[in-house]
């Protein structure tokens, strides 16, 4: 395929890769131990020694941002992937088969959606204890019905296309039709959605941590860095600001990647 990938998307892809690498290799990159406390040098803004300053415990914010990326990105990527795997299939079946399958799947996803995402997180965290796993489970469960609904409605549109009837007439099996005709045709919006929901998941992780339910200290995550920073927002805004910036940048990057993938899958509407 001869696809012109825009500058923006190249930047996005590069940035995402860079972020993942930075997070993965943070133990070797980080200037200091992210757990080392030093109350004598706490709450300092950026200095030559601590580029991003120090937090209330005197821990190096740059090192914490780097290490925090491991947790935040892992949750942000893992959770939507898990729920996409399950949700897209369920949605396609519902949309393609209709009838009772549809009703059953749609209603059960409605049921799940009846729990506000964050409250679901609160309940899962209360039951399992707030942790990395709880955050992944909560976010994956929360996103699952959304994948179901989206792929269902996209499938419904495709289902009406004449080539599907033609395939049925040609005697193809359901699985084969769904795989060969439905999936490629709905992949575009789903990939866009996945990119958005990785973004959402990273932000959800932050929101869960803001409520004190995400990955737990002493290991930093961007979300709990914001939470910790919130208590002294006016006095020392730096830790929260850098963590907030890290979230914003990584969400931006993943959105750009989503666009790039979308353009690859769907060259005609691309830039």
């Amino acid at each position: 395929m001869n696809v012109p990938i825009g500058k923006l998307t190249a930047i996005g892809g590069g940035l995402s890769l860079l972020l993942i690498l930075l997070a993965a290799f943070s133990p070797w990159i980080a200037p200091l131990d992210p757990l080392d406390q030093s109350f004598l040098t706490a709450n300092q803004g950026p200095t030559a020694e601590h580029w991003f300053g120090t937090d209330a415990f005197g821990r190096d914010v740059l090192s914490r941002v780097l290490f925090g990326g491991r947790v935040s990105l892992a949750i942000g990527i893992l959770a939507p992937l898990l729920s996409a795997l399950a949700g897209i299939w369920a949605g396609m079946l519902a949309g393609y088969l209709g009838g009772w399958t549809d009703r059953l799947l749609s209603r059960s996803s409605d049921l799940l959606m009846s729990f506000p995402t964050l409250l679901l997180g609160v309940m899962i965290a209360a039951a399992l204890g707030p942790s990395f796993q709880s955050a992944v489970i909560a976010i994956a469960v929360a996103l699952f019905p959304r994948f179901v609904r989206l792929s269902r409605s996209a499938t419904q549109v495709v289902r009406r296309e004449p080539f599907i009837d033609a395939s049925i007439a040609a005697g193809r099996g359901t699985a084969s039709i769904v795989l060969r005709h439905v999936l490629p045709n709905i992949a575009g919006p789903l990939v866009v959605a996945l990119s958005l929901w990785i973004a959402t998941a990273i932000r959800l992780e932050a929101a869960l941590s803001f409520l004190g339910l995400g990955a737990q200290p002493p290991a930093p995550s961007w979300g709990n860095m914001i939470r910790d920073g919130m208590s002294d927002l006016v006095g020392d805004p730096w830790p929260a600001a850098f963590a907030g910036a890290a979230i914003t940048i990584s969400v931006l990057a993943f959105n750009m990647v989503g666009d790039a993938l979308r353009d690859l899958l769907d060259p005609e509407t691309g830039l």
Partner: peptide, 29 residues
């Protein structure tokens, strides 16, 4: 929320607040 309580106090919307157990918080207020 410590943030909301602190900001409201700094702004003057509330005159008396319960503090927070965060290192360095008192000095910062």
């Amino acid at each position: 929320e410590t943030a909301a309580r602190t900001l409201a106090f700094v702004k003057g919307d509330v005159q008396l607040i319960e503090g927070a157990t965060v290192p360095g918080w008192l000095a910062s207020i």
